[in-house]
């Protein structure tokens, strides 16, 4: 079973994402901010990361930059999932090494389409 790290400071978003991704047969690990997410990745690199942008302590952009420097850190497929939906934010995320980008609000169909797009399903 593939693993997905869901990183979001909103417990509601994490719960919704968990339900959708478990339906797509992913094992879920949760983190509330970039620091927790980075610790989780140091312990075990997941196959996928669903990543919020604005979070306390360490935001999604900084997390992604540090993740890609970890040994094997270029492996996980990173899908940004955020309310920041202007072209500049999206371009910045792609430049930082994101594989896809989901604009909130989202539903199962969109998550499934994006995970298919990057070859996770």
């Amino acid at each position: 079973m593939k693993t997905c790290l869901v990183v979001d400071d909103s417990s509601v978003i994490r719960k919704v994402a968990r339900r959708i991704l478990e339906g797509l047969e992913f094992e879920i690990v949760e983190a509330e901010d970039g620091e927790q997410a980075l610790d989780a990745c140091r312990r075990h690199l997941p196959d996928a990361i669903l990543l919020d942008w604005n979070m306390p302590k360490m935001d999604g952009y900084e997390f992604l930059r540090l993740l890609r420097k970890l040994p094997g850190g270029d492996g996980p497929k990173v899908v940004f999932c955020t309310t920041e939906n202007d072209v500049a934010h999206i371009a910045r995320a792609l430049h930082a090494g994101a594989n896809e980008y989901i604009m909130k609000p989202f539903d199962k169909e969109i998550v499934e389409a994006k995970f298919q797009e990057v070859g996770l399903i």
Binding site: L94, A98, E100, M103, F106
Partner: peptide, 14 residues
Amino acid sequence: QFEVQRGLPIQSLV
């Protein structure tokens, strides 16, 4: 936003 997220790769959106 919903329509552009169904099937369109993010690179193509940008």
